[in-house]
Amino acid sequence: MTPKKTYIHDYCTIENNEIVLNGTSIFKAEPTTFGDFSKQAYRNFDIQYPKFFKMDALSKLAFLGAELLLSPITSSEKENNIALILANNSSSLDTDVKYQESISDKENYFPSPAVFVYTLPNICLGEISIRHQLKSENSFFIFDAFNTEFMSHYANILLDSDKADSVLCGWVEFFDDNYKAFLCTISKEENTKYKNQTIKTLYNK
């Protein structure tokens, strides 16, 4: 059986204090920390989700990208069969280091449960799933660099086998206040916007 063609629908890039949606800059802040930038972005898009402020930086980064791509296509009225496939290089190391620092002094040993719960990279998938009420397949991979062929192949398998109606996939890297997120939505529904583009060409734009 010939696999059915799949199409990129929307994509979003977050880096250097700027959010770009489908090639257009939609939010830019003056140079600042990611914590401040993410808070400004949350306010700018009028997101109503106080749990955002409890998330670690990696989850905030993934959440913001997913919010822009999934909010227009998800509904609380129906099941949203959207698979999530994300990857990065540093795993949850940024939060791991913070947690380790909180337990390194035996005389002042007060590990924070709220930090500990983010010491796995796939927690950001859970945050996105809770927000958009997804019960679909999700996976998080650690790569040296964004493996676009793998991502594209995995997304196509999920769509061809009807495991998902759409796939949100991409790269969400965060360590020591250096970050880049690239997320896109893919489905079998025809879309000619990016017919000559691939995940790789959009990521490298």
Partner: peptide, 17 residues
Amino acid sequence: LGLDSIDALELIVILDK
């Protein structure tokens, strides 16, 4: 206030610390 179970654990840490 709508606190959750992780918040409850943080409150226990506040009492201790």
